[in-house]
């Protein structure tokens, strides 16, 4: 099936990428308040996207509808392993996001597939990512496209030391 084109992101896509990133983080926080966003996050991400588009080993792809509207994006990076466990180098997918009105059309699957291919072309054979426990849809998606669960990350809040008055 011919779908929305997936292409590498360009500098002119950064405003659209930021809009999508904002929407993604709002969904994360709605699902799990532990992902509350830092006040400086948007400025940080604007700078990060600008760097990532030129950085070797970093990959950003977008889904572009009708040749003008970015409706999804995915980011990945090649990293060294920890040195004592294989692999020596691995790919990491940071984000895959599709605007809510454009879901269930296979766009996320095609973004992830394109990103995976680009990371494999960088010479890595293993790619990892983290999915939120409170997002069962994401876990189901990744399992459906051939990913297997490796580790669970557990978290404990630190009590607020401020005494109540």
């Amino acid at each position: 099936m011919e779908g929305i084109p997936i292409r590498s992101a360009r500098r002119g896509d950064i405003p659209s990428l930021l809009l999508l990133w904002d929407a993604m983080m709002r969904e994360f926080v709605d699902a799990d308040p532990r992902f509350e966003v830092h006040p400086d996050a948007r400025a940080h991400m604007a700078a990060s996207f600008a760097v990532w588009l030129q950085e070797p080993g970093r990959t950003v792809v977008v889904a572009e509808e009708a040749g003008r509207m970015i409706v999804g994006f995915a980011t990945g990076v090649v990293l060294p392993g920890n040195g004592w466990q294989v692999p020596e180098r691995l790919g990491r997918i940071s984000d895959v996001y599709v605007a809510a009105p454009r879901r269930r059309k296979g766009i996320a699957r095609r973004l992830a597939g394109r990103l995976l291919d680009l990371l494999y072309e960088e010479g890595v054979e293993t790619v990892r990512l983290a999915a939120a426990v409170e997002n069962p849809g994401a876990r189901a998606f990744w399992n459906a496209v051939g990913w297997s669960e490796l580790e669970v990350v557990l978290e404990r809040p630190v009590p607020d030391p401020t005494p109540k008055v």
């Binding site: 995976l116 293993t126 990892r128 983290a130 990913w147 297997s148 490796l150 580790e151 669970v152 990350v153």
Partner: peptide
């Protein structure tokens, strides 16, 4: 501690 994320992996040639 409570689970917050799951780390997933995919290896070239598998899956």
């Amino acid at each position: 501690y409570v689970p917050v994320q799951v780390e997933l992996e995919r290896t070239l040639g598998r899956g």
